[in-house]
Design a protein around this nucleic acid. Structure first.
Lengths: 350, 350
DNA sequence: GTGAAAGCGCTAACAA
DNA sequence: TTGTTAGCGCTTTCAC
């Protein structure tokens, strides 16, 4: 009996039967007590809790999941964990989830559809109760698997035509409009935009919102001043490099995210440009780091906690009240401008 | 029959029986096939795999865990996910784990023993096969729970007297010694140290290693030049502030981690000090960001992937070959200096 | 080689 | 109110 022996040496691991025996009740009563069923008398409930304490017992979640069909596990898939935006988002999401008795499974897709597929599959294997796909609009086709398996899902900026899927809409335009008028008010007329990769839905939206904002502000926008780059520090360095090759250069740059903006700050410094005197820079996300760049970065804030909360609520709505057709299927998260030191009036020479 | 009905509407979710039926074999054969048992004939194996593909079936991990006692889940507890060092570590750990068929559960303790306790408990509930405690030497008492439950555990810089526990030793001294001689070579004699909080074992070790390095280099160390601060950007700002209040100021600062160093960079800039002309700064960790600070940060590199790999191997050794007394119980991860732009010769006036 | 059957620890009918 | 019992989906003896 190798198994028995192993368990014997392991010693503890009390199970529901151990508790029942100690409390002198049936295992059903133990189960009811733990799950807060109102049908248990105070007398027995007390005995059970005491036994639980005494044994330092806790239920086996796998057994629970197996019989109840619910794992109290939530998946969250982010694009790239090395962008500080995402850890911050994950942390918020975890906090909320744990507070509600859920555990989370985190994966990053690294913008690779194959990795995304494997993440989804692994989450399905673990029987997650729902998945938040925070990849901001890339390769959502893989998600068919989730939808087919009837798992609640919430996407950032991407609509899936399925009753189990909800969407978080990001209102970038408010923040971007504020950024453009902030710059315009400072006297800038030549503003460039370092866009994110076009395969990202969010990057395209941000770019379009920028174009609209410029248009509405009556500001001309040169074709060459909109450059596609990666949402990374290196992307920012590269994008800035391209801008510098131009003969007509902008006096301000709005970036599709903070990482690009920080890359620009770095590259501008290397080129001997002073920010904000020679060049104003605005990021988007307002990651914690933005406050500590040199100079502190003016940024369009996208609240991680708002986003995390929306994602959790969306999932919970689908999970805990499934089939309710009046469940909200769309959530909105807004943006706003945070002005710091990286923006200022353009110098006379510009 | 509410449950039946629910399953009916859910539609799919083929189980091992479905596969067995389609392949016209017993469920035992399906199980064997999936688990790569050599006792299955090619003929049947082929039939089974085909049925699996056709149904897009995959096993229920909870059922597997319940019967086998192994969850293929690994926990990792970090101190603070907003320090970029940790996401980078987690990512490495996840990569390795997933490659070996494990999933990971992440939690941050935020240096709060209560949170740590709840993390440990939740991980125990999920029946993790092992836990990597990457909090670098704080409040390890809570971990008794893990040890008592006989769960393999690996700690950074903390030894637990238990056969299930292993330790990763960090060799800071190599890197710190290199940092000090780098500065000495540049002509610095007045070097300060912004230490981490003393409740962290790692912070104390780093500080001691610094003292030793200074001593060995024949450099005097003023009492007031060693200041305890948080391992955060704000901590760095505050620590620098204290240093500035002194009449005798150092020409170089070595910091207990990169976050402190980046805070110093920021505060120095605000005070009008130029780095490295007026002040040299060295960090520790070498987070990805270090390359992109202004100026780029000279830092003592602590490889996340080395650390992650050591942690995984330690856990795996305990998990997959338990009871083997010759299993290595200690792992060593080293550090090295990466020189960038934040260090230079002190200016004449200093 | 293959299959039948006994649980893993728990929840939820159903009985009492 | 409480207890008894039938599984949840799988692995793993044990027979064949």
């Amino acid at each position: 009996m190798p198994r028995k022996a192993a368990r014997k040496t392991a010693g503890k691991m009390p199970d529901i039967r151990t508790v029942a025996a100690l409390a002198k009740v049936s295992i059903a009563t133990v189960s009811r007590t733990i799950n807060g069923s109102p049908l248990v008398s105070d007398r027995l409930s007390k005995r059970v809790w005491q036994a639980i304490k005494q044994l330092n017992y806790f239920p086996n979640t796998h057994a629970r999941t197996l019989v109840s069909g619910r794992s109290r596990l939530l998946g969250i898939i982010v694009e790239n964990i090395t962008n500080p935006f995402f850890p911050e988002l994950v942390q918020s999401f975890e906090e909320i989830a744990v507070k509600h008795g859920y555990e989370i499974l985190v994966s990053s897709s690294n913008s690779d559809p194959e990795i995304l597929t494997s993440c989804v599959r692994r989450m399905l294997e673990r029987k997650v109760d729902g998945v938040a796909v925070m990849t901001f609009g890339e390769e959502e086709t893989v998600l068919d698997q989730l939808v087919h398996r009837n798992v609640p899902i919430v996407l950032a900026e991407f609509k899936l035509d399925d009753p189990k899927a909800s969407t978080i809409l990001l209102d970038y335009s408010t923040g971007i409009r504020a950024a453009v008028s902030h710059l315009a008010g400072l006297g800038h007329r030549s503003i460039a935009f370092l866009a994110g990769p076009h395969h990202l839905h969010s990057a395209v939206t941000r770019e379009n919102d920028f174009r609209t904002a410029m248009h509405n502000a009556g500001l001309p926008l040169q074709k060459k001043w909109v450059i596609e780059c990666d949402h990374t520090l290196k992307g920012g360095v590269a994008g800035f490099g391209q801008l510098q090759k131009l003969t007509a250069r902008p006096t301000a740059i709005v970036c599709s995210n903070d990482m690009i903006a920080i890359g620009v700050l770095r590259a501008a410094y290397m080129d001997g440009l002073r920010v904000p005197q020679d060049l104003s820079v605005i990021g988007l996300d307002d990651i914690d780091f933005a406050e500590f760049t040199l100079p502190p970065l003016t940024s369009i804030r996208l609240s991680r906690s708002d986003l995390a909360r929306a994602a959790f609520e969306a999932l919970r709505a689908q999970t805990e009240d499934p089939g309710n057709p009046k469940m909200p299927r769309e959530f909105l998260v807004s943006t706003s401008l945070v002005v710091r030191g990286s923006t200022g009036a353009p110098s006379a020479g510009s």
